[in-house]
Every structure is written in structure tokens, then in C-alpha cells.
Design a protein around this nucleic acid. Sequence first.
DNA 1: GAGTGGTCTAGACCACGCG
DNA 2: GCGTGGTCTAGACCACTCT
Lengths: 226, 226
Amino acid sequence: MSKEWAAKPLSDRGRLRTDTDGAPLYASVKQLILDKIHSGEWPPKQRVPSENELVAELGVSKMTANRALRELANEGELVRIQGVGSFVADRKGHSDLFEVRNIAEEIAERGHQHKAIVVVLAEEPASPAIADSLGLTIGCPVFHSLIVHHENDVPVQLEDRYVNPAAAPGYLEQDFTTQTPNAYLMQAAPLSSSEHIVEAVMPHAWECKLLMMLRTEPCLAIRRRT
Amino acid sequence: MSKEWAAKPLSDRGRLRTDTDGAPLYASVKQLILDKIHSGEWPPKQRVPSENELVAELGVSKMTANRALRELANEGELVRIQGVGSFVADRKGHSDLFEVRNIAEEIAERGHQHKAIVVVLAEEPASPAIADSLGLTIGCPVFHSLIVHHENDVPVQLEDRYVNPAAAPGYLEQDFTTQTPNAYLMQAAPLSSSEHIVEAVMPHAWECKLLMMLRTEPCLAIRRRT
DNA sequence: GAGTGGTCTAGACCACGCG
DNA sequence: GCGTGGTCTAGACCACTCT
């Protein structure tokens, strides 16, 4: 940090804190930094003031500075590296409306039991729709897995996946009751841009059966392409 | 809280902290509480120890107890009410895969400029599909709004909304360039269970025009029902 | 008034990364 | 060794709710 980036202290030493604007001090510190980021004054990769600098220049305590920076990091605005500093995060690919997460992890986080039942795991000729979405020719062999995920023995998700054999040759040999297809593919396929499409559908009869649900309930379908 | 729910202090007063298991103290406190919740020992609505009780019974400082409880609240495990206490959160309607947020707030959070353009705001006879989803009879008048949301003058979202006139009589008189329909409805309609459906669609030609996008790009559509 | 969450401080110690 | 983030404490004050 150079020297002068903030005009005056935000607090006057212990006294007067909720008086300037009614907001908590750490929130004011956050906003002050956010403004710099959003105005472009502090571009991505730019180093932001350290905790100690905030303490010295804003007259706040280290805990307050820490909380401001920590929350900004949690919100994805900053990246903090111990022993190095805090930096403005790269702006990630636009819409962070959704965060599609690993079903097994999510269930485990809730302290529930996850179970996967493999209904189908085979090689099939690609249908026109599948071939198109995978960029293959019609009838070309593709790997197909159909897995029902259970949370505490209640079926909650149906994973119907088609995989390009060239991308994951060992796909059919995997045991997807212990490892999620996602986990395997992450490890098998180095890096490729992924895209999630989420849609709402009325379930087909066979899908209802697998999920033990009523035909009238709409479902969420997640289409992944990698 | 009764009396004995935690056997021994987690810390030994200032010294020894990262030694028992390598985890930060506040994380241990979080885990201790999480275990009680996930084991069912503390069911939803159950009051959890207050900050001061954690201080007294675990021998941690108030800030540490506060951070543990605060983070659990942020993660949706607890609900905290000032002046009352902290309580185990109700298990929300299954899938928290998504968090559909207010478009205006989200853009503002990014520090960008939000603009809404009202394309349609009128009363129309309900189509069969609309009538069905609103629980009205076909041809029955419904309010229809079609709004394009812009982020920094780039169209990013198309909001095509049908509203039951009985629920929001003043709907047509609103200025949705300054207030989001959501915000108005939240205020107009006391409380009713809401449901979000998210789907992926190929945009229609008129939709492409409004969003200035290619016909070949898939879109996310959000269906709300309240 | 008592209890609760919420914030703030001043100072301390630790683990880490860099020169 | 120094600066960084990361954690922790002890004590303080505030706003709020309930009784």
C-alpha cells in the first residue's frame, strides 16, 4: 500500500461507533473496500491494505479489520493468503446465481447418510439428441450411467449421465456406489470448461418409480456438459 | 439450558489451543454443536447454549463463542434472535441446491447498475396454462408483467410474470423501474409459501430480441409460484 | 432488570511466506 | 527477521426482548 487511500479514521477510539450511519464498524470497513473495488480503483490482483494497515489508517482494532477482510473473502471479493496479503479477486464468469454442488458432499454436510444405487451402467449407441450434445455422430457408442441418490434412504436425486468414451475410458469399470461420477471424471479428465443447465420437468413414469414420487410433482433436472 | 451438556472445557485458558486437534477453537465449538444437532439430541426449535453459557461451560471467550454461533447461523444451522436466544433451524424444504435471489440486490452487490425496462404491464385473459398454474379459470383476467433487467445496460434477465389479481390489486399501478415486482408482492401479500422452479429453455425469437442474444444460446428460466 | 445477541478494543501468540 | 493472515482473550458497551 502506498500511503493515503482513506481520508479519515472511521472511529474515534472506542467511543462513538454506531453513530455515523448506524452500521457496524466492520461493515463500514467492508463497504469502504468494496467501493474501491467496484469503482475500479483497485483492480483484480491488486493488493488491499493489510489488517495492520487498516488498524493504523482507520483507527479500528485488528479484530474489526480482520472480520471485514474475512467476510469479504468469504463473499468471494478478496483472496487472502497467509503470510502474503489480501488481494482483489478475479471477477468470475458472470452469473453466480447458482452453485451446483456435489450431492454426496451436500448430504454429508447435513450429517445425513448418502447412498447411491446404480440402475444403469453400460455402453449404448448415441441417440440423436445425445450425439448432438456430446458432439459425436448418431449411433456412436457412449457410456450411460443412471444413478439414484438417496439421503437417509429417501431417494432425492436421479443422475442420468452420458459420457464421451474418449474422455473417460474407464468409466464403465467404476464403482459409483462409493465414488460419485463427478469425482471420477474430475480426476480422469484434466480440465475442461463445464456448464450446468438446470431445468424443470414433469417426471416420466419410470423416473417417478425410481424416485418414489407422484407423477404430478415437478422435478428439477440438471444437465451438465463438460 | 439445563446444566451438563459438555463434559470438559475445550481450552485450557489461553495456552494450548491449536494442540488438541489442530482445528481452531471456534471450529471445535461449531462441531460440538453440529454434532448435537445432527445426532438429533437437539431437535429443530431447540434452544442452544447462549454465548455466555458457552463462555462459562467451555471456557472460551465470548468472541470465540460468538463466532461459532454466528457462523452456524450464516450456514443456516441456527437462527439467532437478539434478546431471545439461538435456536436450531428448521430443516428447510429439502433441496437447498439453489438460492434464487433478488436480481436488483444481486447486481447492486456487485457494484453494478441495475435498470429495469417494463415491456408489458397489463391485464390479460388467462391462457389455459396460466390459469392452471394460478388455480384460476381459463380466460379469467390476470395481471401480466414483462420486464427486462439490465446490468450496466446489458440485458441479463427477462422477467415474465403473471399475478393473481386477487392477491395484489394494485399491481398494475406499480412503477417497476424503481421497485422490483418481487419487492412489491412481498409487501402486498402477507405470507404465502413460495416455490421456485428453474428450467432451461431455448429462447423464443421475441425473447432473443429483448435480451439481444443469439437464438442458439440456451437460457435459464425461473418460474415462481406463490 | 436480567439475559440475549452484537460489536468493539487492546494486546497477545501462532503459523506461514519471503528475502 | 519481518510482515502477513489467523486466532484468542478479557472486558466493555450497546440494543433488544421478556417479565
